[in-house]
């Protein structure tokens, strides 16, 4: 004997659609959050790469002492409040503003770490990169568009 199948009722259909809608919306929200977090990571990565490029360019300029006096100015003082150098670097049509801070590394007694050996000082250099036009601009969901990287530069490597 053949059983006669019964169709979905309207209520069942509405519940099913609602469940599917909730699921789709949840996935969409999750996707947006993931994309946003992902975007932050990508942005900061690109910023880190740009900051590293600025650091390497700084080392090259110091080696070449270009412009003349650049090296002497760099080793001549500490730049902790006001940057030693600023500029703009363009990468993939985005302009990155950067600031370079530097200070001489000293030991716990305050003496230069390189001792009395000539041309043997050590500086800690911080490069901060901003992008999207403004130092204070924020991007929805993850704060300032700013990255800072640091490394030590020795006079002997120049």
């Amino acid at each position: 004997m053949r059983r006669h199948s019964r169709a979905f009722s309207l209520a069942e259909l509405l519940v099913a659609l609602a469940l599917i809608a909730v699921a789709i919306l949840s996935v969409l929200a999750l996707s947006i959050a993931v994309a946003r977090g992902n975007r932050e990571g990508v942005d900061k990565t690109v910023g880190t790469v740009v900051a590293s490029q600025v650091l390497e360019r700084l080392v090259d300029q110091l080696r070449a002492d270009e412009p003349v006096g650049f090296k002497a100015a760099f080793w001549g003082g500490d730049f902790t409040s006001n940057p030693f150098n600023t500029g703009i670097l363009t990468n993939n049509k985005t302009e990155y503003k950067y600031e370079i801070f530097a200070r001489t590394v000293t030991d716990s007694s305050g003496a230069s770490l390189g001792g009395s050996t000539p041309d043997n000082r050590l500086k800690k250099v911080d490069v901060t990169v901003y992008w999207w036009d403004s130092d204070s601009e924020t991007h929805q969901g993850y704060g300032d568009l700013k990255v800072t990287v640091s490394r030590l530069i020795s006079e002997g490597e120049l």
Partner: peptide, 11 residues
């Protein structure tokens, strides 16, 4: 590396 460079140059 740069730390070692500075330290060894001094001594």
């Amino acid at each position: 590396l740069r730390y070692v460079q500075s330290r060894t140059a001094a001594n």
